[in-house]
Simulated assay, not measured.
Amino acid sequence: MLTGRVALVTGAGRGLGAAHARLLAAEGAAVVVNDVGASLDGRTSGEQVAADVVADITAVGGRAVADTCDISTFAGAAAAVRRVVDTFGRIDILVNNAGIMDTSGVEDLAEDSLDRVLDVHVKGSVATTRAAFAYMRTQAFGRIINTISESALDMRMADSIAYSSAKAAVWGLTMATAKNGAPYGITANAVSPGARTRMSAGVLDAGMSTGLDLAPEHVSRVVVLLASPGAGDITGRVVHAAAGQVREYILRRTADTDLVRRLADGSTSTVAS
Rank of each mutant, 00 (worst) to 15 (best):
N34D: 13
D35M: 13
A66N: 05
S39P: 13
A19R: 02
E47R: 14
A64F: 01
G76M: 04
D56W: 06
I71P: 12
R22F: 00
T68F: 03
T68E: 12
D35L: 09
Q48P: 15
V33K: 06
G11H: 03
T58P: 02
N34G: 09
N34C: 13
E47I: 06
R63A: 12
A75D: 14
R22G: 05
L24M: 10
G46W: 13
D41A: 11
V6Y: 03
D52P: 01
A38C: 10
V60R: 11
I57M: 01
D67W: 02
G15A: 06
V33N: 02
V65C: 06
Q48L: 15
L40F: 05
A51D: 15
A19T: 01
R5Q: 13
A66L: 09
T73P: 08
N34V: 11
V65H: 00
V31N: 09
D56N: 00
G37N: 13
S39V: 08
D70L: 00
G11S: 09
A75L: 08
G76S: 06
A29D: 12
V60Q: 01
V53F: 03
V49T: 15
T10G: 07
F74P: 10
V32I: 15
L2M: 07
T58E: 13
A38K: 14
G42N: 12
A50T: 00
T44D: 14
L23A: 05
A50F: 09
A25C: 09
E27M: 02
S39I: 07
V9C: 08
V65P: 03
V60C: 02
G4Q: 00
G28L: 12
G15S: 10
A66G: 01
V32L: 14
D35V: 11
V9E: 00
R22Y: 03
A26C: 09
T73D: 05
V60N: 07
G46N: 14
G17M: 03
G28R: 08
G4F: 09
A75V: 10
D70K: 05
V31L: 07
A66Y: 04
R63M: 07
A29Y: 07
L24C: 08
T44I: 07
G61H: 00
G17S: 12
A51C: 08
T68W: 01
V65N: 07
D56K: 07
A51H: 14
D52I: 03
G15N: 14
V54H: 04
A75M: 01
L23K: 10
V60Y: 08
T73Y: 09
D41T: 15
S45Y: 14
S39Y: 05
D67N: 15
